[in-house]
Design a protein around this nucleic acid. Structure first.
Lengths: 182, 182
DNA sequence: GGCCGCTGTTGAGGATTTTAAACATCCAGG
DNA sequence: CCTGGATGTTTAAAATCCTCAACAGCGGCC
C-alpha cells in the first residue's frame, strides 16, 4: 500500500521519454530536486510535486491513481482469485479488479511435455487463465514461472509468451482469449 | 483543476467528524501543522500529507480523486443501487460512487403514521438508507419525496430533514449515521 | 463570574526541502 | 585520445516545512 513516490515518478518520467533536466526545465524546478525525489532522499511538498507533474503534464490524481490502474499484475497466486461462486458452482474470477477487461475465460488441456512451440507467441489482445490440474511453465517476456494447480496468469498478448508442460501429467487450464467472443 | 489542498483537507476531515487535534493525534503529527496546511500557509510534503491521511484513514489516490464540487445525489431509485449480490443473496450498495463515505448502514422501523417530530432535524455528518418494507416520506431541505420499498436516500445531515411514515403499514429501513460509530 | 475543556490560530526555532553549482559517467565524433 | 554534450548525482546555502508551546475564542456547567 505504500506508494514509492520516487520510483513512481521516475517510471512516469521515463514513460514520457523525459530526462531529469528536461522535465525540470518544463516544470520550472531544478534537476537536482528531481534526482533527490526519485531517490526518495526527500519527500517533496505537494506544491513541488504538482509543479513537477505539470511539466509532464499529469495531475496529482492521475499520479496517485496510476499505480493501481497501471501496474499490470501478471501472476496470481491461488488466493489472489476473486471467488464469485455459490455453494454448488464455483466461479473464480481472475483479474476482477482490472477495469475494461476484454476477454472471457475458457478451458484448455496440455499433454505431458507439450508446449506452444519453439517460437514465442505474440499477438494482439490479452489472455489469462487458471491451472486446474498438473503444472505449466509460462514465460511472459523476461519473466518465467511454473504454475501449479490453483495458480493463474493474466498478461498482454503483445508480450512474447510461451506455454510448456514440464510434467508427466496432463495439464488442465481454464484459459481465455481476446477479443471477448464469449 | 487547481486543487485547493487546504480546503480539501478541511472538508475531508470535517466529513469524518474529526477535530484538528484528534486527527493530529491519530496521524502522529501536530495540530498546528494541520491548521497551517488547511490555511494553505504551507504546502505539506507528500510524506506529511500521507501521515495525515493515514489518520483518517484515506489514501493519497482517494484524496486527490475525491471531487467535492460535484452535486451530491440525494435520491436513489430502486434501479440506481449498485448490486453486489449473487443469485441467492442480494447485496445492493448505496452511493457506491461516492468516495470517502464515512458511515455504516443500520436497521430501523417506523410504526404507521409516525415521524421524527415536528421539528426538522439538523446535525453534523451524513446519513443514508434503504426502505425495506412499507413507505416513508423524506424531506431534505426543500426537496421531499415518498420512498417505497427498494428506494433509498443519501444526504448531508446538516441539511434540515424529517422522516414520516404516511402509510398504515410499518415501515422498515436500513439506515445509517455518521461518524461511523458502528 | 470563573473555570474547564474544547476548538482553531500563531510565533520562534529546529528539521527538512529546494536551489545553484559542481561532480561523475557514459557515449558519439573528430 | 579527448572533447562535447548528454545523462544522473552530490554538496552547502537558502527557503520552506514542521514542532512545540503559548494564545484567543467559544460553549457548558458549577
Amino acid at each position: 500500500m505504500t506508494l514509492d513516490v520516487g520510483a513512481h515518478l521516475r517510471a512516469v518520467r521515463q514513460m514520457y521519454g523525459l530526462s531529469q533536466r528536461e522535465l525540470a526545465k518544463r516544470a520550472g524546478v531544478t534537476n537536482g530536486m528531481i534526482s533527490l525525489i526519485e531517490q526518495n532522499r526527500v519527500s517533496p511538498s505537494v506544491s513541488s510535486l504538482k509543479k513537477v507533474l505539470d511539466g509532464i503534464p499529469m495531475s496529482l490524481a492521475e499520479f496517485f491513481t496510476l499505480d493501481l490502474a497501471q501496474a499490470p499484475q501478471v501472476f496470481f497466486g491461488r488466493d489472489e482469485l476473486t471467488d464469485l461462486g455459490s455453494d454448488s458452482v464455483s466461479l473464480r474470477l481472475v483479474a476482477a479488479r482490472r477495469p475494461g477487461r476484454a476477454m472471457a475465460i475458457l478451458h484448455e488441456r496440455y499433454a505431458p511435455a507439450s508446449d506452444t512451440g519453439e517460437e514465442m507467441i505474440t499477438h494482439k489482445g490479452e489472455e489469462g487463465g487458471v491451472v486446474v490440474r498438473g503444472c505449466v511453465e509460462l514465460t511472459v517476456g523476461a519473466a518465467s514461472r511454473v504454475l501449479n494447480a490453483g495458480d493463474a496468469y493474466y498478461f498482454s498478448s503483445s508480450v512474447p509468451h510461451r506455454f510448456r508442460n514440464p510434467g508427466r501429467e496432463e495439464c488442465e487450464i481454464i484459459s481465455a482469449s481476446t477479443p471477448p467472443t464469449f
